[in-house]
Amino acid sequence: MREITYLEAIREAMTQEMERDERVFMIGEDIGEYGGAFQVSYGMLEQFGPERILDVPITELALTGAAVGAALIGMRPIAEIMFMDFTTLASEQLVNQAAKLRFMFGGKATVPMVLRTPSGSGTGAAEHHSQSLENWFTHIPGLKVVQPSTPYDAKGLLVSSIRDNNAVVFVEHKLLYKTKGPVPEELYTIPLGQADIKREGKDLTIIATAVMVQRSLQAAEELAKEGIDVEVVDPRTLRPLDKDTLINSVKKTGKVLIVHEAVKTSGIGGEFAAVIAESEAFGYLEAPIMRLAGEEIPIPYNRMLEYHAVPQVENIIEKARDLAQLKV
């Protein structure tokens, strides 16, 4: 199979869906001639024209609301918020409106929209362009939250998100944009709410999201050399969460390490841990559920400080090794 980048996979999903369904359009800042801050929509203005690639001035709240309104009358908008940090400006329309309209109107409205946004640190962009806020949106009934870690998942999950009849927050990761992987040329879907076992193992489960999936896979290769067999599970969708896959993996291995980039306190890892603790997997646990996550700080500018603000491969190796060797 041909290999393309995560970024190209996202662009291909949008392009093919726009070719297939004339209700699909894009709205966002600098998504036209500029091609998007990360070049995700590069070339799409030429193909679809300004009637379907809606480039807007700095209006995070209004552009998000515009997506909600268009969705309410049967269109299928894809809104791009340039950095996840700026979803704070868009959240009124996303949280109060997009998420609630259907329920509030007695199940008689649909809001089929996608809000795409890049999260994460590692680019030196510091406090205002590096946050991981995906857990905020998982707390809102009515939203779905998707966080792909590979080009293959990015395309299939984005196609599903566009076709979904609900508001989907599609969280991309900046450091993954240039990563390559096999992606079919034709359209395909990956169901929302379905986790994926990225690596099978028997000694320990790592549940990881976004770029931490890749780091956990690297860590697993290193640990394999020490005879520690790690299973890596990627939930892929944070809401709705595929609880069964998480639970079954922990039942198999008896130990679980949760790894994410967002700050640990009230992060999505707490939810993963609770899901496991509340399930029949509790009786299979051979050690406490452990979490490795972002430090309790904003993301700093300095390269070394930024590096140490979030889990790296060596941190995962160390933590996983300790857990694997822990005897309770």
């Binding site: 709205i27 809606l54 709240l61 209004a62 552009l63 998000t64 609301g65 515009a66 997506a67 909600v68 309104g69 268009a70 969705a71 309410l72 009358i73 049967g74 269109m75 908008p77 329309q93 409106q97």
Partner: peptide
Amino acid sequence: PMAVGVGIG
């Protein structure tokens, strides 16, 4: 803001 989107649609 929704009104703008309804208008676009």
